[in-house]
Design a protein around this nucleic acid. Sequence first.
RNA 1: GGGCAUAUAGCUCAGUUGGUUAGAGCGCGUCGCUGAUAACGACGAGGUCCCAAGUUCGAAUCUUGGUAUGCCCA
Length: 1151
Amino acid sequence: MFEPVDNQVSFPKLEEIILEFWKRRQIYDRSLKLRENCEKFVFFEGPPTANGLPHPGHCLTRAMKDLFPRYRTMRGYLCERKAGWDTHGLPVEVEVCKELGIHSKEEIENYGVEPFIHKCQQSVWRYMQEWERLTERLGFWIKLDEAYVTYHERYVESVWWSLKVLFDRGHLYRGHKIVWWWAQGGTALSSGEVGQGYRTVADPSAYVLLPLVDDPDTNLLIWTTTPWTLPSNQFAAVNPDIDYVTVVDEELGCKLVIAKDLVESIAEKTKRQLRVEAEYRGRDLIGKRYMPPFDYYYPTRKDEQGELTEGGKQHVMWRVVPADFVTTDSGTGLVHQAPAFGEVDYEVLVREQQRFVSGSGPDLICAVGPNGKFTEEAEDLADMWVKDADKLITRKLKESHRLYFLDQYLHEYPFCWRAENDPLIQYPRQSWFIRTTEFKQRMLDNNQQINWLPEHIKHGRFGNFLESNVDWALSRERYWGTPLPIWVCEKTGQMEAIDSYAALQQKPGARGFEAWEQAKRINPELPDDLRVHKPYIDEITYDSPFASGASMRRAPEVIDCWYDSGAMPFAQWGFPHQNADRFFQQFPADFISEALDQTRGWFYSLLAISTLVFDEQTDAIPEIPFPHPFRNCIVLGLMLSEWYESKKNPSDIRLTKQEADEAFGVGNYSQSVGKMSKQKRNYLAPSELFNRYGADALRWYFFANQPPWTPIRYSEQQIKDSIPEFLLRLWNVYGFFLIYANIDEFDPSLELRELDENSQLRSHELAKAESYRPIAERSEIDRWILAELDETINLVTERMDAYDNFNACARINGFVDALSNWYVRRSRSRFWGSEKRSRDKLDAYWTLYECLIQTSKLIAPFVPFVAESIWKNLTGVFGERTVESVHLCDFPESGHREDANLAHNMNLLREIASLGRAARMEAKLKVRQPLNAVTVILGPQADQQWLRAHDSILREELNVKSLNCTPDVGAYVTYQIQPNFGRLGQRLRALLPKVKQILGNADGAKLLDELNRVNRVTLQVEGQSIELDSEDIQVRLVANPGWAAAQGDGVVVVLATELTPELIIEGLARDIIRLVQDRRKELKLDFSDRIKLELSTDSAELKQAIADFKDLIMDETLTVKLEILNQPRASMPTNSLNQFKLSIGIEIDNG
RNA sequence: GGGCAUAUAGCUCAGUUGGUUAGAGCGCGUCGCUGAUAACGACGAGGUCCCAAGUUCGAAUCUUGGUAUGCCCA
């Protein structure tokens, strides 16, 4: 006996049971053990940060990360899955600050770095349980208890090692980074924070004259909305490829250099007459020297020259430089450059520096201090807050006749999000960089070898990002992060990198370890991992090897946490300090997957670190060919949410249409789609979703509804829909099998006592059963569904090998549909027969059983719970002889029973059935009414033969007495002849439309006749003869009007609609049967209950139907005794049948 | 402002190297089935394939230029 299942299955409940089973029987561990010595499929987990609640978006990534490892495991690979957690960085600090009610760095320092760090370490795990629960509940198999953690000492030391490698090779340097700076708070803001604080403000809009050194009557005209940056001017930038002009302003008696396209708009704005005097390219201006607007630096430094790398000398500052970003959209076409206060300006400076021999180029000028006030260098402006200085600056410009025009300008400008009245400024901070730009080509080469899905990421978003690579700003002036492992000599400034705590301890004169030791004494609970963190690590100093008597002291910064996660390929093992073998076994990854937002995040940090660190071969590291550290990467789309807003109160929302209808009334709401938002609560929490619909429903929705890189909508309705559309359909087929197998006592285990231990019930094993007949001997439909099964296995395997889950699912869905809506539908009567062990019935059982067994394996990676449940029940009859979990099975292999011909024929049959139903529909003849004949008109001989041989299916499906199959068109059909475009297009080119016309007008039947006789026809087209053979044309059949006919692709189905009295009576008999069955159901009779049936009617027709079809009626309704009453009893309900009345009485009579 | 992507039925989405009747599911409508049964199924309506120009015998598909939306960057 198989365990009977409830048709009203609760998938969430079923999943809980399966989860318990997996845990109890350690299925995941055993699935790994099984592949112990197999080829590896390497997966890297991109570490999430567990300091927030898991989000629906995480379900998608985690589902994808589960799918392919499961699939590969079943395909015979060893796929280890080590979990990981990202634990450092600003988000964690922000969480702790929130909790403490503080935000500035000053406040953190007042609170104390030490307790702050402790809080950070604790806070990381705040939502750990939620994460683990989600991971497990979703069925994501990953080793949570072996997770790598980025703050662990061995992880940190591994990161240190890689930084030391980079440092020792000269790829790590100190420079400036222009950041958005909150001067009052003394801290830099992340781009996310900056984005929150934009406001519209009016700033001065100043047009400023910069006289040329060689020609003081001619001025470069520049435009700025931040006059306070002018004292720090270093260059003027032009676009070498746009046209510039010299214009004369007669009134002022001076000449201006501006972009040609902007002459008019500037003249209009400033209300001046501007006469063009000369025209030239931007590149002609490059190198020209000018006088900056202020004299704070100019008089002393104007003659400074530096040595160019390409030879020769040049003035280092105050000259025209080229820049692509200069446009003629606004301003003057010349851009004032103050590299201290703009990121692009700074890049210009860096580029200029690179043109000079190291040290002799321009340095950074910055007349403003970190407090946002001018320094002493700006003499009369000193101590003035920059924004307050704008007025004074413009006045001074006016006095020196350098101000050409002044206006106001409205634009968006960022303010501090926690101190609304403080405008942010861009400001240079000292920072550590990784010289990634030098590896640009290597990274591009590496990228070239990666298989990106979707493909456009490679050259699009990711490739472009690499192309415009800038050096990686590595350091952060924060607290909770991997400390930068660089110690600096306090005397000479010389530096060295350290790669482990032990290395530090061995340094001569190493000291300062007490800070940690004392903390540990006070609080023994402190995890030892904290000793490599701030503030303890900062206390450690040692004797400088560069100057006697001096100490080495750590650079105070921590590093970007993206570096942490990008280092995971080696740091997860603690390489090279430990586990070198594990690292090499698990490198590079075959598969990673994250969402699109990781292009500049994890995807980049992985690629950059790997490319740089493993660039050089060493004793410890062999040469590693590209791509590394990952070969295949699925980039997931963003997840959006769908919700319904009340029109009255838009903040009142519901998540499904149904709920909105109930809550707001139909039409009183609008549908919205957008980003998920915690505040809005516009999505259903994953846990809730699992409770309502189950993990499999969610998984199938993710995998089957769209390619994973399209933006995915988190729509409760659609997740819900994936149940009836796939899971339930499969479940019904499975349930159908169970019902009849139990009734008929079909038990495959009884015939398969000799099974191998741990059988997976592969096809060849099933074949050993006595009643399992060779496929060739079974009926057409059995052979067909098994062929479909094998074809499906082939295709799903091929698609999954190509990381294409979407089309794999489409094919599985198609198979389940075929199984349910054709195989079971057409085979139902075979299961109903009373002979329990008839050959045909056993064939049907074995076929369906095999399909279900294989399907459970096929769907196991996708919907692991349902798959497991089906597998366990279907194999339960074997006891211990079969593998106890579907996840310990191999992925199914085709039994090589594919049969394209059969598939074609069966499709034809299904199409004809469908056309027949359409024709019936058209003629308003319900299927219950038998008809005399159906005529199928189709061309190919082979098809006709096959159809004649299998007409019973069609006769039954369409309820007709006979089927005629003919190539004759008769009166029903007209031929239409079309050229075979694919074939003739190349040959005929422009003549094709003519040929099409001629063929269309020709007498189709005659043409075909000629073709059949001599196998070619000749057409005269525009004086040319064109010979066509039968391959060159396509024949279409068109049903003539006036018949109950339907046409498909190359086939027409015509129904004989004539109703004889016999047919009508038979139709009535069927109606009676249906009414009796209805009544049986109303009385809640069991399937197998025999009955005594009493019928009563006035109608002569019904009486005749009962008389003529007595046996049929009794048989179909399990009637043992049938009586016709002249008068219905009072207890007998009366039904209308057409215009007649029929009363039915039923009593159970099981003898 | 730049980069990338997307635009196909009321909704969510497929659509393989260009081939002449553009598909699926949901929803809607009509109906069927009643021994898978609070299920199941059939059939139908519904499309300017965002717009325009071009290439071609032929364009949802290729090219160019727009428009709209999303993401990333500035």
